[in-house]
């Protein structure tokens, strides 16, 4: 019974990760277009896009944190798993314990990021703080904090699901 609930949650979480990944992917394309636009506008028409720096910074946050859950989902976060693969082969029981520990630690770190970012998001939402130069180009902070918050929350869920459904989401 629990298993089917978990599988339901897992399905939803995986779909959100994939959707976020698609949006993040489009941002990569957007980045290429915007910077080229700035280079050409500046070189040919004497009219640089004055918000290029802020837009690039903003895009970087979008790319990293929209794609991170999908990276977690497919198990591509950087790691050195030679020992673990050996253990899986020789003493699968020990390997299972280590997998459990790794996913738990990962979920803990991600939830700490949620804990750190949540008040930050609320503060920026209420104060409507922005970055950039007033009169030149400005962008609000809160969407950035929200993306990081949502991304870390989704990663937390994905790692917990890896504990509950050991074979879920392509984890090794």
């Amino acid at each position: 019974m629990f298993q089917s609930t978990f599988h339901g949650i897992s399905k939803i979480a995986n779909s959100i990760s994939k959707l976020a990944n698609v949006i993040g992917t489009l941002v990569v394309l957007g980045l290429v277009i915007i910077i080229n636009y700035d280079v050409f506008a500046r070189g040919l028409f004497n009219s640089p896009f004055r918000g290029a720096v802020e837009v690039v910074q903003f895009s970087m946050v979008l790319i990293v944190f929209l794609q991170l859950p999908d990276v977690v989902r497919v198990g591509r976060l950087t790691r050195s798993d030679g020992m673990l693969l050996l253990l899986e082969h020789k003493v699968p029981k020990v390997a299972r314990v280590i997998h459990f520990f790794i996913n738990l630690l990962s979920a803990a770190v991600m939830s700490l990021i949620v804990l750190a970012m949540f008040p930050e998001f609320i503060e920026m939402w209420e104060s409507k703080d922005y970055f950039g130069i007033p009169g030149v180009f400005t962008a609000p902070w809160w969407p950035i904090k929200l993306i990081i918050l949502g991304s870390a929350a989704l990663c937390t869920v994905l790692f917990i699901l890896k504990i509950l459904i050991p074979k879920a989401g392509g984890s090794k």
Partner: peptide, 8 residues
């Protein structure tokens, strides 16, 4: 070494 993701 035991296989924890490096950033974690």
């Amino acid at each position: 070494y035991i296989g924890v993701y490096i950033p974690i």
